[in-house]
Amino acid sequence: QKPIVRVFLPNKQRTVVPARCGVTVRDSLKKALMMRGLIPECCAVYRIQDGEKKPIGWDTDISWLTGEELHVEVLE
């Protein structure tokens, strides 16, 4: 079983991306966001920890988040 990260996107959409070492959250999600007309710069990404949303940086190595759920939200 490959290491993955589940990602909840705006508009009730979601995707799953591989959690590859040395790849940033930005690079992992860029294609999924672009297909939906979004760019990382207009969004914020969060991980859910103890039921709370914790913001994470787009430059975080995605392999550190293996098995986690991330939420991407459009910044107002």
Rank of each mutant, 00 (worst) to 15 (best):
R47T: 11
I56D: 01
D27I: 12
I56A: 11
H71R: 08
K54V: 12
D61Y: 09
Y46M: 11
V17S: 01
G51F: 05
I39G: 14
K2S: 06
P18F: 13
L33V: 04
P40A: 13
I56R: 01
I39D: 14
V23M: 08
D50N: 13
V7W: 00
A19V: 10
Q49Y: 13
V72G: 00
L75N: 12
T15G: 01
E69K: 08
T60S: 14
P18L: 15
K2A: 02
M34F: 04
W64V: 14
S28N: 02
S28H: 01
N11T: 03
K2N: 14
V5I: 09
W58G: 05
V72A: 03
I48E: 12
Q49E: 12
H71L: 09
D50P: 04
H71E: 11
P18Y: 15
G51P: 07
L33T: 03
R36E: 09
R14I: 06
L33G: 08
E73P: 00
V5H: 00
V74K: 15
I48A: 11
L65F: 14
A44G: 10
W58Y: 07
V5M: 02
K31C: 05
M35A: 15
K53Y: 09
V25R: 00
R47A: 10
D27N: 05
I4T: 04
K30S: 05
C21R: 15
V5P: 00
T15I: 11
D59F: 04
G37M: 06
G22F: 05
E76Q: 15
I4D: 05
D27L: 07
V72T: 03
W58R: 01
Q1H: 13
M35N: 15
G22N: 04
K30V: 06
E52K: 13
G37W: 02
L75F: 05
P55C: 09
W64C: 15
M35C: 10
W64P: 11
C42G: 15
A44C: 08
D27F: 08
G57N: 07
A19F: 02
V16T: 11
V25M: 13
T15D: 02
E69P: 08
D50V: 10
L33Y: 01
G22L: 03
T66R: 09
A19G: 05
L29Q: 00
L75H: 11
R36K: 09
K12Y: 11
A44R: 10
K2L: 04
K53D: 07
L29T: 06
P55H: 11
Y46C: 15
L65I: 09
Y46H: 14
A19T: 06
T15M: 09
D27A: 08
K31T: 06
Q13P: 01
L38F: 07
C21Q: 15
A44I: 04
P3G: 15
R26V: 11
L75S: 08
D59A: 06
L70M: 11
G51S: 09
I56L: 08
R20P: 13
L33A: 02
R26A: 12
I39R: 12
I56H: 03
E41V: 04
V17D: 00
Q13K: 04
A44L: 12
V5E: 00
W58I: 08
K30E: 07
E41K: 07
D27H: 10
K53N: 04
P10N: 02
C21N: 13
C43P: 00
C43A: 07
Q13A: 06
M35H: 15
K2Q: 01
E76D: 14
L38S: 05
E68H: 10
V72M: 04
T66N: 09
Q49V: 12
A44F: 06
V74N: 12
E52S: 09
K31R: 08
D50E: 12
G67F: 02
K12D: 11
V16I: 07
C21E: 15
E76P: 13
V16L: 03
V25N: 00
P40T: 14
Y46A: 12
L33P: 03
M35S: 10
C43H: 15
I56C: 09
R26G: 14
K12S: 11
V16E: 13
D59C: 07
D50Y: 12
Q13S: 05
R6M: 04
S63N: 11
R20K: 14
P3E: 15
L75M: 14
R47Y: 05
E73W: 02
T66A: 12
I4K: 03
T15H: 05
D61F: 05
V74D: 13
E68F: 15
R20D: 07
P18I: 06
V7N: 00
V74L: 14
G57W: 05
A32T: 07
R36P: 06
Q13R: 03
T66Y: 04
C42P: 03
K53Q: 12
L70D: 00
